[in-house]
Design a binder for these strands. Structure first.
Length: 553
RNA sequence: UGACCUGUGGUGUAACUGGCAACACGUCUGACUCUGGAUCAGAAGAGUCCUGGUUCGAGCCCAGGCAGGUCAACCA
């Protein structure tokens, strides 16, 4: 491995000093939404670190808020983590610890460090002060231990309605850290929980749950994102007052990716407002969206490795993600030929009714991928953009009088074109050079090689071409409403592309490179009668990059 | 007008804990190629937010600024 990141240095120091014999990490999602690429960074860190240093990682659902959490999300989260290739040591839920947490709360009450507050949430907010001015003590702050215990037990027993009272830690209303100004520990919610049902009507807040759960599980390194840094003094305060295993919290900067958003709220908004088809729309940065788009878990893990970890704000170029998937797919994707925008190509000197089955390699990067046979005959389809009647400077492809090679077949010479009444080119006529058949020893040199599909055997397929969802590099930093920043070209639908016959059987989970066009994968909705492919990413294309905007697809 | 965190090429991370800034992506050349892909070779690009200080020597230490981020949910 390369240079160590700051978490690895901390862990190595802890191992070396004997503070820990073995490290224990955890991935703690709240089951209220789908995982995205930002979570992948966290997963990769937590599982990766434990793996590297011979420790273990628990999966713990942070389910302390019954109003937003659902079992459906639990399942999708587990599926996504496994898909990424990680397996947890234990599957836990914060709700597993509700009884222990309750006992902890009573302990703090007995120590005079927690009290029941009858103030309304508005009053509590008002007494809290602001970041620049201190708060003031609640009138209920000095209740006796007995009264607090009694009230808290009656809260649990369901004697009070939602919002009537809360349990608060008694710390310091003048602390410069807002989180230390007598934070709420428990609130009353007469609501069914996805796991504990109606056993409870009081639920612990994040701050009174997370650290103690970490501690109960013996988590040595509790790794979270920077926004929790201000919570750390409170995290430590609870552990210290409770005199329990001292888990420690470390923060890292969350991932930002260019041309997309990575916040559950904003992603949900895209779904709700109908800008995408759902959480697994292939344009979404969710793991389910990326999977459907054709991203491999290996590529995503490689991406997570390459972006590194630090504590400063960052915006990673989505180009790096694309680099990672290209690198992976180049090695493993089978090559196929598909013409996205068909133009008839007629080989005038090729015998009518004859068909040759030509061998083409499935993957030039991997000889073990073998060969396949592809039909070839007099009438073919070629790509419209591979022909120019009046070629511009630098255009290497087909034009009148030019020789080009048809991949895996023959060199052909373009003779003339067929036009419709409006003057548009509807077909290209060419002659083929029989001696230039692939695999032979022909001397003929050409400037370019084109992909093609035999017209008589072509399978019509639907192809979905995706581009970045947003047109601005950092949409999250803009003030404008989200929908005004969307890229109107993020999805282009090709209803009828022409594919070589072997693609009819393609199933989701397979990866292909459509020669010269990019990497593609069958969509979830594909059927043998109506094959549908998603474009994962284009191939790098130095020619297209130099053309005026909008020239390529 | 508070506290805390952060500030290194376009982007993301490094720099043996003080010894004249490295790697990857991107960009640009060229070679090769039956994918304008891949591969190979090479180049440009920062003097480390600013100003002082300590030191033989500072991106690393100190002081003061500046800039960005975070914090005022009975969310996590």
């Amino acid at each position: 491995m390369s240079a160590k990141n700051f978490l690895e240095e901390i862990i190595e120091a802890d191992l070396k000093s004997g503070r820990h014999q073995r490290i224990v990490t955890r991935f703690p999602p709240e089951p209220n939404g789908y995982l995205h690429i930002g979570h992948a960074k966290s997963i990769h860190l937590n599982f990766g670190l434990a793996d590297k240093y011979g420790g273990i990682t628990n999966l713990r659902f942070d389910d302390t808020n019954p109003t937003t959490e659902e079992t459906e999300y639990v399942e999708s989260i587990k599926r996504d983590i496994r898909w990424l290739g990680y397996e947890w040591e234990n599957e836990f839920y914060a709700s597993d610890y509700f009884e222990r947490l309750y006992e902890f709360a009573e302990k703090l009450i007995r120590k005079g460090l927690a009290y029941v507050d009858d103030s309304t949430s508005e009053e509590i907010a008002a007494m809290k002060g602001t970041p620049t001015s201190p708060g003031i003590n609640s009138p209920y702050r000095n209740r006796s231990v007995e009264e607090n215990l009694d009230l808290f037990r009656r809260m649990r027993a369901g004697e009070f309605p939602d919002g009537m009272r809360v349990l608060r830690a008694k710390i310091d209303m003048a602390s410069p850290n807002m989180h230390l100004r007598d934070p709420v520990m428990y609130r009353i919610k007469h609501e069914a929980h996805h796991r504990t049902g109606t056993d409870w009507c009081i639920y612990p807040m994040y701050d009174f749950a997370h650290g103690q759960c970490d501690s109960l599980e013996g988590i040595t390194h509790s790794i979270c994102t920077m926004e929790f840094e201000v919570h750390r003094p409170l995290y430590e305060w609870f552990i210290e007052q409770l005199e329990i295993f001292p888990s420690r919290q470390y923060e890292f900067a969350r991932l930002n990716l260019s041309y997309t958003v990575l916040s559950k709220r904003k992603l949900l908004q895209l779904v709700n407002e109908g800008h995408v088809s759902g959480w697994d729309d292939p344009r979404m940065p969710t793991l389910s969206g990326l999977r459907r788009r054709g991203y491999t878990p290996e590529a995503i893990r490689e991406f997570c490795e390459r972006i590194g970890v630090a504590r400063r704000d960052n915006v990673v170029d989505v180009g790096l993600l694309e680099y990672c998937i290209r690198e992976d797919l180049n090695r493993r994707a089978q090559r196929r030929m598909v013409v996205l925008s068909p133009l008839k190509l007629i080989l005038t000197n090729y015998p009518e009714g004859q068909t040759e089955w030509l061998p083409l390699e499935n993957n030039p990067e991997d000889a073990s991928a073998g060969m396949r046979e592809v039909p070839f005959s007099r009438e073919l389809y070629m790509e419209q953009e591979d022909f120019m009647e009046m070629p511009v400077k630098g255009f290497l492809r087909m034009a009148p009088g030019r020789l080009v090679r048809l991949k895996g077949a023959y060199v052909v010479r373009c003779d003339d074109v067929v036009k419709d009444e409006k003057g548009a080119v509807v077909a290209v006529r060419a002659t083929y050079l029989p001696e230039t058949r692939s695999g032979g020893a022909s001397e003929v040199k050409v400037k370019s090689t084109l992909h093609w599909v035999c017209a008589a055997h072509a399978v019509p397929v639907k192809v979905l071409l995706y581009d970045r969802l947003f047109q601005v590099e950092h949409p999250a930093a803009q003030d404008e409403p989200l929908h005004t920043l969307l890229n109107p070209q993020s999805l282009a639908i090709v209803e009828q592309a022409m594919a070589e016959p072997s693609l009819r059987q393609a199933a989701p989970g397979e990866y292909f490179q459509f020669l010269r066009k990019g990497y593609f994968t069958p969509d979830l909705t594909t059927t043998p009668d109506r094959p549908v492919f998603n474009r994962t990413v284009t191939l790098k294309d130095h020619w297209a990059a130099k053309q005026p905007a909008g020239a390529g697809s």
